[in-house]
Amino acid sequence: MPVTHAVGRLTVIALEDAEGPFFMPRAEAFPDATAEQWAAADAADPAAVTAEGEWWLRFRSYAVRAGDGPVTLVDAGIGPAGSLAADWAPVPGRLPGELAAAGIDPAEVETIVLTHLHNDHMGWAVPRDSPFTAARVVVQRADVALYEANRDQAGQFDLLVEPLRAEGRLHELDGDLALAPGIRVVATPGHTPGHQSVLVEDGDDSLLVAGDMLVHAIQLLHPELAYASDFDPAQARATRQRALKAVKAVAVSHLGEAFRQA
């Protein structure tokens, strides 16, 4: 069964689409990390490293709901065998089966929040492949603009953005948005220009579904460390440091554990 985390009356459910190695050696992904920092990170999250020292990723989406109410899905995984992530990620993903195991019908998914438009986070939201035929898809306008300007270099605009616009299901933001009581989209730029996260709050409890605001436990221990795939490393660092001080827990797409204390 999928792993869950309670935030007051709200439940956050981790849905693992796939797992596999990263295409870049982790020493190149975090060039400033020291041997001591790696040792501490591996002790904190041993499932994220193989016996050979490879970086082992989970590819997760998260479902958020109150009781039996509508579902907010945060990220949409790597997708099926023919998805845009197939050239590097372990397709096909198993998100539809994970939803079924969690007792969620795709028709219950009212909103899909894509933390960003990298192809390992939006696969099952692509209309040609998606079981979510009625859900609105929430993105930041800055990420849409990036792919619109470079539409000949990636398929996100042609396969995701344009079809969703044509169906009237694309919701473009400039900043934050309250989705439902206790569920709010917050801008967390840096990894991409329009990276966003979902803040889940009830009373004094809080959890940030963080997407790729951080990608490895080494950044939980040392949030100042830059990640080579960040669009703006300085902005990503400032965002990460600020966000981790503001919440009690995080849910991170690629860590070995689905939920961690901030």
Rank of each mutant, 00 (worst) to 15 (best):
A125W: 01
W56A: 01
G182P: 06
D17T: 01
V7H: 01
K248P: 06
V198A: 03
F23R: 14
P193G: 09
S61Y: 08
P80M: 04
Y147F: 12
S83Y: 04
W88C: 04
A89C: 10
H121Q: 14
I183P: 07
S229F: 15
L159Y: 11
V71F: 01
V139F: 11
G67F: 12
Q156M: 03
E36N: 09
E257N: 10
F23P: 07
N119A: 14
L84W: 11
V3E: 15
N119E: 15
P106F: 01
F30W: 15
Y62P: 01
L170W: 03
P189R: 04
A35C: 05
W56M: 08
A246L: 02
A187K: 10
A246D: 05
Y147R: 04
G203I: 04
G203H: 02
G79L: 05
G123W: 00
A47N: 10
Q235G: 14
E52A: 15
A48Y: 06
V144E: 03
A81M: 11
R237S: 12
V138W: 06
T72P: 00
A251W: 02
L114S: 00
D152C: 13
A262P: 09
K245V: 06
A35Y: 03
V215G: 09
A102T: 10
A187V: 08
D75M: 08
E172Q: 14
T192G: 01
Q153L: 12
V138S: 07
F259S: 04
I78L: 09
A107F: 07
A89I: 07
I218E: 07
P131C: 13
L117D: 02
H5R: 12
G69I: 00
A262I: 10
Q241L: 07
Y62I: 01
I104P: 03
I78E: 02
L160G: 05
A134D: 15
